[in-house]
Nucleic acid binder design. Structure first.
Lengths: 250, 250
DNA sequence: GAAATAGTGTCTGTGAGACACTATTAG
DNA sequence: CTAATAGTGTCTCACAGACACTATTTC
């Protein structure tokens, strides 16, 4: 850490070359969630190159210092590449780094989760000709994901489930317009348990994060349901209590 | 991303040299919190070398791939160096990375916060002869910290304050033994507002995260107070409701 | 009419907020 | 006794859970 005394900062910077120091490999990995067929799904890609060639993995890759303005841009680039989605809900989950997780050396990955409406994803938009698939989170364990991606996924799922207890995050998994029953169903899918209809509607109504679309109804062979959209400019709403699910759960 | 077809993974790894690719600079920064003189404080060090020489900064530095087993080890190394504390509460806060934050190039830092008891910190243990000081969080804005450390600090403070609303995190800011009144005071300092005594005690009692130390009392010119310690093996307790502070706060 | 889903009314339970009350020490 | 802080009793209020009820559509 000690350099020659009294050198100016500009001289120091002139002389500085990061290639002289061993540095970790830096990647971003994106956990893209969507609800499909009544199940929480993640987008996976089959690795086309070494290492871990042929295994399923989270979309990700090296941060490109020439191209990516910041970490979020790197994650967005990868998301756009796989799904064409431009404005998802994005949240940084955690960063994992150690000497074991990648055979190429000490590596670090910034894990970001994205919530999208499955219908808005456009699969074939990628230039890279690699296999891409949705996988139900429940079944990802059977796939033996590449690297430590099982652990990264686990962290993202935990974060998502935890936040659904006290926020309205699942609104980002919905299409433009949706009914309260549909939203409730998505909450139930993410949480893996039933939610009380009356309490759920009360909670959502009082948060003022949705607005009814005047006159728009979802019709079926029953009473039509009011369609709602997310009120613009609504940052993540925090409820003062968690959903407890049956009495006194921790 | 495309290499020659059908190369084996081991051949690929043989050939792979990370120095051929431009990589971000990777650092860890540690936000070390302690309560001193009725205020939330952070540990700062004066930068001894370029860049930003002479400015106050969060303790941190490059990840050393030969030395640091993982990111947490890198943060712990730095914490130990500055305070001698071996087993703090550590929590990863967020990772910031972009091309602007460090003049040496695209850089990324993993921000971790540590909660310690101020009395347990041993200042002079560092080998590096650099100035070190506690600074009240409230006054850090006056110091114009190095790099984007003001932003990193802000993120850690936000995380801490948010979690104090629904966890018992401040127990990690306490010494071995403490009274409930002392703990309540620390909650109030972190939150920046008063907390109701009766509700506070009820909440802590029912969480079963503390145990009374039999017979041990804090004596003063008043009724002696029971001393408590943290029950071992108590992971972070999550309360089902937040402290709201005056009626109906969001 | 029946079937089906949308949507409401209202009671209970839990735990936070408020605040007055009692308890135990030193001096 | 007073001063001071420790610790409790108990009422109110907000909001989740439970569950029965009404409403509106198609067939």
């Amino acid at each position: 850490m000690e350099e020659s005394q009294d050198e100016s900062e500009s001289a120091y910077l002139q002389r500085y070359d990061s290639r002289n120091y061993p540095s970790p490999l830096v990647t971003v990995d994106v956990v893209i969630f969507a609800v499909i067929d009544d199940a929480l799904n993640v987008l996976l890609v089959k690795r086309g190159g070494h290492p871990e060639k042929g295994k399923w993995a989270l979309p990700g890759g090296f941060v490109r210092v020439e191209e990516d303005r910041d970490l979020e841009a790197a994650a967005l680039r990868r998301l756009r590449q796989e799904t064409g989605v431009e404005t998802p809900y994005l949240e940084q989950v955690a960063t994992f780094g150690d000497g074991q997780r990648d055979a190429r050396g000490w590596s670090l990955t910034v894990v970001t989760m994205a919530l999208i409406d499955a219908a808005s994803a456009n699969f074939s938009s990628g230039e890279t000709v690699q296999e891409t698939r949705w996988s139900a989170v429940e079944h990802c364990a059977d796939l033996t994901l590449a690297f430590d991606h099982a652990r990264l996924l686990e962290a993202a799922v935990q974060r998502l489930r935890a936040k659904v207890e006290y926020t309205a995050l699942p609104i980002h998994l919905m299409p433009e317009a949706f009914t309260l029953s549909e939203l409730q169903r998505v909450f139930e899918i993410v949480l893996g348990r039933r939610v009380e209809k009356a309490s759920f509607r009360r909670r959502i109504r009082e948060a003022s994060i949705l607005e009814a679309i005047p006159g728009e109804k979802r019709r079926g062979s029953n009473r039509p349901a009011q369609l709602y959209r997310v009120v613009e400019g609504e940052g993540a709403h925090f409820f003062p209590r968690t959903l407890t699910g049956r009495r006194g759960a921790s």
